[in-house]
C-alpha cells in the first residue's frame, strides 16, 4: 500500500469517528447539522476510477448509517454524490489533466474553483440527505432551512479542516 492510500484510510477513519462522535450530536438552532465525513469523497484523487470512488463512498455511507441508525440515508446520498463528483468537477475545472497533483485541493484547483467545487458537493449532499429524510415529515420551509444552514456549517468546518490538511510546501505557493 502506498503512502497516499494509508493517508486516505486514516483520514476516513478520523472523519467517520468525528462525524459519529461529535458532529452527529450537533444541531445548531435546530437547523444546522454538520455533514463532515463527505470531506473524504471531496478529497479522493481525481485519477481514482469511478468504480473505486463509488465503492468507497458506498462503504463510507454505510458505516455512518450503522453508527447513527439512519438505515440507508447516508449510503444513498454518498453513492449519488460519488457519481456526481466528476460532472461537478468538470463545471469548475475544464482540463483536469494539467493539475499538479491528483487530489482536489485549494492548491491544485485554485482557491476559487476549489471552494465552488466544495460548496456544490456539500449543497448536493445536504439536499439529498434532507430530501430523503423528508419522505416521512414534509415541511418545505424547515427542509430549506436545514439544507441551507447545514451546507453553510459543513462548509465552514471543511474549510477549517483544509487549512490544517494542506502540507506546508503547498501553503507557500
Amino acid at each position: 500500500m502506498s503512502k497516499t492510500t494509508v493517508q486516505f484510510i486514516l483520514l476516513g477513519v478520523i472523519l467517520v469517528l468525528a462525524q459519529v462522535i461529535v458532529f452527529n450530536h450537533i444541531c445548531l438552532f435546530n437547523v444546522a447539522v454538520p455533514m463532515v465525513f463527505i470531506y473524504l469523497i471531496v478529497r479522493l484523487p481525481i485519477t481514482l476510477s469511478v468504480n473505486w470512488l463509488l465503492t468507497i463512498s458506498f462503504v463510507l455511507g454505510l458505516i455512518v448509517d450503522i453508527f447513527s441508525d439512519t438505515y440507508g440515508m447516508n449510503t444513498l446520498a454518498c453513492t449519488v454524490l460519488a457519481m456526481a463528483r466528476k460532472p461537478i468537477l468538470r463545471l469548475y475545472v475544464p482540463r483536469e489533466e494539467d493539475l499538479p497533483r491528483p487530489e482536489p485541493s485549494m492548491y491544485t484547483l485554485g482557491t476559487a474553483s476549489y471552494l465552488k467545487y466544495l460548496l456544490t458537493m456539500i449543497l448536493l449532499y445536504c439536499a439529498l440527505i434532507f430530501l430523503i429524510e423528508a419522505f416521512t415529515f414534509f415541511n418545505p420551509i424547515r427542509l430549506l432551512l436545514l439544507i441551507v444552514f447545514s451546507t453553510i456549517l459543513s462548509m465552514a468546518i471543511m474549510v477549517g479542516i483544509d487549512s490544517f490538511m494542506t502540507p506546508r510546501s503547498e501553503k507557500r505557493l
Binding site: 458506498f58 438505515y71 444513498l76 449519488v80
Partner: peptide, 8 residues
C-alpha cells in the same frame, strides 16, 4: 443505489 434503497 438499489442496496441503499433496500436499506432505506
Amino acid at each position: 443505489l438499489v442496496a441503499g434503497l433496500a436499506l432505506l
